[in-house]
């Protein structure tokens, strides 16, 4: 497998990935972001907790590698930024970039769908009630690897804490026309979407080391007609290395015909910008 990136694309990616490592004037960094899990970092299932109001969180280098037995390889990078726009509410925007090998003719690279989403935590967990959240997302066409039309997703998030750790339940459904099994390439981004997804995850924290371990099982119904439910399992870790950075890494496997393996690695930096805080300059 050989990954090649066109020079301008590589330069752009490099700049984007280095951006958060550079000093940003007027910023302040987070402290325990490792505890607040995000979709795909490293697990698909996330908690029902949003980032703090007025906080930004930049997923700086979320790299994912997937490989199927047929030697199809996909590298993806989905830089994403989230902002705590209201109490218990965050907005996110992400743009996945793909490099594939073995799919079609040689190596292909391109942009996927623009992911725009909002998550709202309805409450904070208490002894009597779990944390409940809702999310809504749009996948907007943006490049060769994205869908040909906009798809909307609605979902729910639940987090329940026990003395042993936390359990998270995520469910979501996506609307829009299905893709015919005979022509998945006609709408490649849609083929990557799921009609519905149901996932459960458990995590356990080592608070004195700022470490979190988690594992999940996810069932997903692909968008293609007549396709069967896919099952995936994954495990991962999140680690706060200093007040500025939280790293994550995960390993996943899908069960079914494809037996796909995936690896992911990411780094998140959270920060605040004074100009986004009402009255902060006074």
């Amino acid at each position: 497998m050989r990954i090649t990136l066109a020079a301008p694309c590589a330069r752009g990616l490099t700049v984007f990935c280095l951006l958060p490592f550079l000093a940003i004037p007027g910023t302040v960094q987070g402290q325990t972001d490792y505890f607040n899990t995000d979709r795909g970092r490293p697990l698909h299932v996330q908690d029902a907790i949003t980032i703090e109001q007025y906080a930004f969180e930049l997923q700086a280098a979320p790299i994912r590698w997937e490989r199927t037995p047929g030697s199809f390889v996909v590298w993806s990078l989905e830089p994403e930024i989230a902002y705590g726009v209201l109490p218990r509410t965050q907005l996110e925007i992400g743009l996945p970039l793909y490099v594939t090998d073995g799919i079609g003719d040689g190596t292909r690279k391109g942009v996927g769908a623009v992911h725009l989403s909002v998550i709202h935590a309805l409450n904070v967990e208490t002894l009597g009630l779990p944390a409940l959240g809702v999310h809504a997302a749009l996948s907007i066409p943006a490049g060769d690897f994205g869908p040909r039309r906009t798809y909307g997703t609605l979902g729910a998030l639940v987090t329940r804490t026990t003395s042993l750790g936390r359990i998270h339940l995520n469910a979501d459904a996506t609307g829009g026309p299905a893709v015919a099994p005979s022509e998945p390439d006609a709408n490649p981004g849609a083929a990557e979407l799921s009609r519905w997804t149901l996932g459960v995850a458990a995590d356990r924290t080592m608070p004195l080391r700022s470490l979190l371990f988690g594992a999940e099982v996810v069932a997903a119904q692909p968008f293609q007609d007549d396709s069967e439910v896919e099952w995936r399992a994954a495990a991962g870790v999140r680690w706060q290395v200093n007040p500025y950075w939280a790293f994550d890494a995960g390993l996943g496997r899908s069960f079914g015909d494809e037996h796909e393996w995936s690896l992911t690695f990411g780094a998140a930096r959270s920060f605040g910008l004074i100009r986004f805080i009402p009255g902060g300059r006074r």
Binding site: G26, T27, V28, G30, E52, Q53, Y54, A55, G84, P87, R88, L122, N123, V124, F271, G272, L273, I274, I277, G280
Partner: peptide
Amino acid sequence: TVSEQYYLP
């Protein structure tokens, strides 16, 4: 519904 807020940059 208590909510957290980021500290002052």
